[in-house]
Design a protein around this nucleic acid. Structure first.
Lengths: 251, 251
DNA sequence: AAGTGGTCTAGACCACTCG
DNA sequence: GAGTGGTCTAGACCACTTC
């Protein structure tokens, strides 16, 4: 993630947008103007503006100047994957407690998600997570067997498991897949989050992979309604988020 | 969306991945191999694989071959923005009915979202949407005043309002911003969706813009729990989705 | 008609992975 | 050390928007 010419140009444009030098709805300079201003080739300038477009800051259409759509940058991979890093970036005081940590046989779905043998062992972890002291999220994770020893070695108030196993065991997340829907609180959810049974929760299930495509964990996170919102920008050129039919669309 | 060389290459690779010629976890040919095979330049090949990466199908790391992460393609902008196009692509029979269509004064939030004068008029539309006959989603939309005439002219069982106003009034959506969370069903929601009051619903609010950045509509869609799931893939290189704090994170 | 972004080429050097 | 992807250049032509 070192410095490169196009990142430098992108960072400068990002700063100009954030500071209001290019207000919302205004037009960016043309590619050739930027190229001469930075004495870079047009290709390099295009890499810079493509980066901003992928962050949702600007939009482009053939034949017209690029337009400013947002002022602020979208958050990083780490912040989407890690509750702790998201919360800390927002300036909230985050705390976590592991309530259960047991080795058990994987269910059929868990084995499938983790790409493990049916009937093999997984490590199940139940955690309650708080923001500024308020219980906000219940997290239920199964870790693949090869990750389990690193997770078992952590203290029960560990703030970021993914962070810790990256540092201590060199297990690093590179890709993630996320499924987002709404569910009714079960009795355990209700007790831990201090809400009524069957009240609405926002659920984010996610599967995390290494760079080589090996599954690390499969997680079911449930947020108290009102405590979190997911946000996505899209355009005709790119639609990162997808809808899927739920299991009971038909009757 | 015409054909171009890199789209042609991307489509071919996408087909090879889907058909299993490149199985999950396998490595793609190198850029130079692809370039000679297609007698294209390396730049063009890079555009093709960048497209697949943006769809979440493949991952890349400097120095290593590209790896296959998924078999299936992510859906399009239209399918994220339009319930009708999403449902039709899945092969469901979709029907809609407009229950209310009234002109009223915009609330402060609506005026803000639509970038309109406070106190100006908007068109409010309440719709019930069904998949295969089952009520699945309640949609509440406010349209900007300049869009209202086109919407008022549509029949009450119009399947896709965005589609219709694109064809008839040349009002075309280019960008969208989406906020996803969970809410409890209100009494109107409960009656229309045939669920209990306060039961969980998945809410997708979205703001739609034209190519010039002008706001078209601000919508609150509520799905019966279990009828829909949002899906997103991310990587260290790109995180399209973002978390946000909800209004009541603090106590 | 002029300006702008979209596509494409044919090179080059560097940083990184892997055996 | 060989192979691979990441970055960059300096051109070219085309499609589209704008006036």
């Amino acid at each position: 993630m070192g410095h490169s010419r196009y990142r430098e140009i992108a960072e400068s444009l990002r700063h100009s947008i954030r500071s209001g030098a290019y207000p919302l709805g205004s037009l960016l300079p043309s590619e050739s103007d930027l190229a001469t201003a930075w004495s870079a080739s047009r290709g390099t300038v295009r890499q810079a503006v493509a980066l901003l477009a992928s962050e949702g800051l600007i939009g482009s259409r053939q034949g017209a100047r690029r337009v400013v759509l947002r002022r602020e940058r979208r958050q990083s991979f780490q912040q989407l994957n890690s509750f702790a890093q998201w919360a800390q970036a927002m300036g909230c005081e985050v705390s976590s407690r592991i309530l259960t940590r047991t080795t058990r046989t994987a269910t059929a779905e868990e084995a499938d998600r983790l790409d493990a043998e049916p009937g093999s062992d997984v490590l199940y972890v139940l955690r309650l997570r708080r923001l500024d002291g308020e219980p906000v999220m219940v997290e239920r994770t199964v870790y693949a067997d090869w990750v389990a020893p690193a997770v078992l070695a952590l203290p029960e108030d560990c703030v970021s498991i993914m962070n810790s196993i990256a540092e201590r065991a060199d297990i690093v997340a590179h890709y993630g897949e996320h499924l987002i829907d709404a569910v009714a609180a079960g009795s355990e959810d209700a007790r831990l989050l201090r809400v009524r049974r069957a009240s609405p929760l926002l659920r984010q299930r996610h599967l995390t992979y290494t760079a080589a495509g090996r599954a690390i964990e499969w997680t079911d996170d449930r947020y108290r309604a009102g405590s979190m919102v997911f946000n996505v920008m899209n355009s005709v050129a790119a639609a990162p988020l997808e809808r899927r039919p739920g299991p009971d669309v038909r009757g």
